[in-house]
Computed example of a mutant assay.
Amino acid sequence: MYNKFELSNEYVLVRVLSIKHYTNTLFSFKTARPDKLRFKPGEFIMIGLIIRGELIFRAYSICSPTWSDTLEFYSVKVPNGVFTTFLHKITTKTSIIIKITLTGTLILEALKPGKRLFLLCTGTGIAPFISIIFNHETYTKYNEVIIVLTCRCSRELQFFNDKIKQLTNQSHIRPFVRNKLRFYLSITQEPYPYTGRITWLIKSGTIIADLMIYNFNMLDRFMICGSQQMIFDVTNLLKTLGYIEGVTNNPQDFVYEKSYVSQLKSNN
């Protein structure tokens, strides 16, 4: 079935190894990792499916540590979304297409040296940050790494909670994480110890008070990933606070995943 599309050498067919469903719409899956595939924490890859005779690709951040022999992805089934509706139905008998070339703006090299790294995300925007917090270099570059994740309801936190448990069981990364990794989980649509959207948490000073940390300063660095509106609001807020967007050839104070913004404009 795939051969008639005459895939070039930059694409490879990989087998789905496992799938885990967290809610009716949230799920993660692992695939085999091609030997020649190399990536940096935070990068994304193009995943392809043949849907109704058409080969369709979407960008997916890699959740896996760089040293893992599998690739893991985290996805949401978008209502009436062409791609995610089919992706949601994959099984271990399924194979998918991936593009070997990787890219992405959420990499540590795009940030100047600093003291604290804030990973700001909503929903499945946590995906690239999983790879980043499993990377020992993250902790050698920063004194503190603080994840701020907001979801609609508490059951949507299960994937993240599973990853934190796995992280604490990794003996070779645990010494780097100890006393450096913190996280702030906020829910927006049901009662929870922490509530509110990221922009409000920052503007109101709530996150500073709740975490009992000193206020934001120019040695703080930020990575942002999530919904289009959240990225727009947070990046504009950071700019008003005096922070500058960075890229790999001009490292600065914050970066955000641009592929999510463009992809959300398309049919998922």
Score class of each variant (00 low, 15 high):
201 L>K: 01
102 L>M: 10
145 V>M: 00
140 T>E: 11
139 Y>Q: 02
154 S>W: 09
196 G>T: 05
165 K>S: 14
185 L>H: 03
179 N>S: 14
95 S>P: 06
198 I>G: 03
163 K>C: 12
174 R>K: 15
87 L>R: 10
129 F>M: 03
124 T>M: 09
108 L>V: 08
135 N>Y: 15
155 R>S: 14
144 E>A: 06
111 L>D: 03
171 S>Q: 14
126 I>W: 01
128 P>T: 13
181 L>P: 05
100 I>S: 04
168 T>A: 08
191 P>V: 04
111 L>E: 08
169 N>Q: 15
108 L>G: 03
90 I>A: 05
177 V>P: 03
186 S>A: 15
125 G>E: 07
129 F>Y: 09
124 T>A: 07
115 K>E: 14
130 I>K: 10
148 V>R: 00
145 V>H: 00
124 T>N: 11
87 L>N: 04
126 I>L: 06
109 E>S: 12
148 V>A: 02
175 P>F: 02
177 V>W: 01
145 V>C: 00
189 Q>S: 13
191 P>I: 08
120 L>E: 14
176 F>H: 09
88 H>M: 07
193 P>W: 06
105 T>N: 15
203 K>S: 14
123 G>K: 14
191 P>M: 06
112 K>Q: 10
110 A>Y: 03
114 G>S: 09
107 I>S: 01
97 I>P: 05
170 Q>N: 14
123 G>R: 13
93 K>T: 14
184 Y>W: 07
141 K>A: 02
136 H>V: 10
94 T>F: 01
137 E>S: 00
144 E>P: 06
179 N>G: 06
186 S>H: 10
189 Q>T: 12
104 G>W: 06
169 N>T: 11
105 T>L: 09
159 F>V: 01
165 K>N: 15
200 W>S: 13
144 E>T: 08
165 K>P: 05
205 G>A: 08
130 I>R: 11
137 E>I: 08
98 I>S: 03
192 Y>H: 15
172 H>S: 11
206 T>V: 01
181 L>Q: 02
180 K>F: 04
197 R>E: 06
135 N>E: 12
183 F>L: 08
106 L>Y: 05
171 S>W: 03
117 L>I: 13
199 T>R: 11
154 S>K: 13
140 T>W: 04
114 G>T: 12
203 K>H: 09
149 L>R: 00
194 Y>G: 02
176 F>I: 04
192 Y>M: 08
187 I>A: 03
129 F>T: 01
190 E>M: 05
122 T>L: 07
96 I>G: 02
128 P>Q: 14
126 I>E: 01
108 L>K: 03
192 Y>C: 11
127 A>D: 09
168 T>V: 09
133 I>Y: 03
157 L>Q: 08
112 K>E: 15
133 I>T: 13
144 E>K: 14
113 P>L: 10
149 L>K: 07
106 L>N: 12
206 T>I: 10
138 T>F: 05
166 Q>M: 12
97 I>K: 07
165 K>F: 09
96 I>N: 02
163 K>S: 10
182 R>W: 08
145 V>A: 00
168 T>P: 01
152 R>M: 05
184 Y>E: 04
204 S>P: 07
126 I>D: 00
152 R>P: 09
137 E>H: 05
197 R>N: 07
160 F>G: 00
178 R>A: 14
113 P>F: 13
171 S>G: 04
129 F>A: 01
175 P>K: 00
177 V>Y: 01
201 L>H: 04
